[in-house]
Design a protein around this nucleic acid. Structure first.
Lengths: 190, 190
DNA sequence: TCTCCTTTTCTAGCACCGCTAGGAATACGA
DNA sequence: TCGTATTCCTAGCGGTGCTAGAAAAGGAGA
């Protein structure tokens, strides 16, 4: 029965190939360019093959997003644990978050503005999605004071999310990005 | 030449009708449901008529957004000038902003997440788009301290924007919305 | 090696999208 | 009432996500 194992491996490889192709194409030309036909051409299979791996295009985006959550959580963890002190950790984590969004805008979009079929902030939230939030939680915990830690983390997160999304859509001038980040950190590291 | 005047009036009316239909349909069923065919049926004209008023679907969304900017600016102005004191003004303006986003999510989306063809944060930004930001600017000015007022307003705005968008996409639990708003206000009214 | 059967893969097509060319219908001025 | 100018619609283009059914490929037993 080794042939079955080989087939499973090949299938898994192809699934990763699809996710990688979708991510690369999205980062290069935006999600609008990621059509099922284009994606099929990229992986050198026909369209219906995509649907044997994923329920639809949204599921492919969700897979890209899930990968992104893993990466983001790791980067936030590094930033947090490398900082010697709570206030510096807040700055480092915030900067790492903003840098991630800036470096991989398409993945960030898939994670936080599209792909609603991933459940958040509920008991059945997948562990990977939790991990990133946990980093934020632990980052703000020492600075919470009388505030609810979870709500504080969510609010800080929202500040970061707002900054990166509004800038990306041309609502905020890029030149003042660092200045705004500094203000945010200042207001949350009090 | 009264017939020309009447025609211009009729055209203007129809343009408003298109915008209203687009807005209502978007609020009722989301922007995905706003197709040119559906919109044409709603106003009881054929598709090409839409294109004699607007360059394309994006332009229709931009028109809805522009209307939204006028409304939002007015609501923020009322909130700010009704408050007796700077800190209360911040709370009132923030609450008004969040309420607007919650009450008219589709319009809010057109204003801040879609429709990139409206220029922001630059000298040629239309006056209406400026007005809303000016309200935020004047709101935070008394509380700025050593911070750059414009950057502070943008940061506060980002906090609000992050809160409302993340909640709307199911990333944040609705129950804690007021708690998060209170934290944001607390951190910016210091 | 040949046949049968299962699994995988592709071709072709559906209904929809935004958008537009070109002709039909209408309303106008004389 | 007629010719003209404007308005409006029908029909269609190339694209989208997705799928049914045919074709091809692979493996097991004779």
């Amino acid at each position: 029965m080794t042939t079955q194992a080989r087939r499973r491996r090949e299938q898994a490889d192809r699934e990763k190939l699809i996710i990688k192709a979708a991510r690369d194409l999205a980062e290069a030309e935006g999600w609008d360019a990621v059509t099922t036909r284009r994606l099929a051409a990229e992986i050198e299979y026909s369209q219906p093959v995509l649907y044997s791996h994923f329920k639809g295009k949204d599921a492919i985006m969700a897979a890209v997003a899930t990968e992104g959550f893993t990466d983001l959580a790791a980067e936030l963890h590094t930033a947090r644990t490398s900082a010697p002190e709570a206030r510096l950790a807040l700055t480092a984590v915030g900067a790492a978050y903003a840098a991630f969004a800036d470096r991989r805008p398409a993945v960030y979009d898939a994670m936080f503005t599209h792909a609603v079929d991933l459940t958040f902030a509920s008991p059945e939230t997948p562990a990977i999605l939790q991990a990133g939030f946990t980093e934020l939680l632990e980052t703000v915990r020492p600075l919470a004071g009388d505030d609810d830690v979870a709500a504080l983390a969510e609010t800080f997160w929202s500040g970061l999310h707002g900054l990166v999304t509004l800038m990306r859509n041309g609502r905020l001038r890029r030149e003042d990005h660092d200045k705004r980040l500094a203000i945010l950190f200042g207001r949350f590291a009090a």
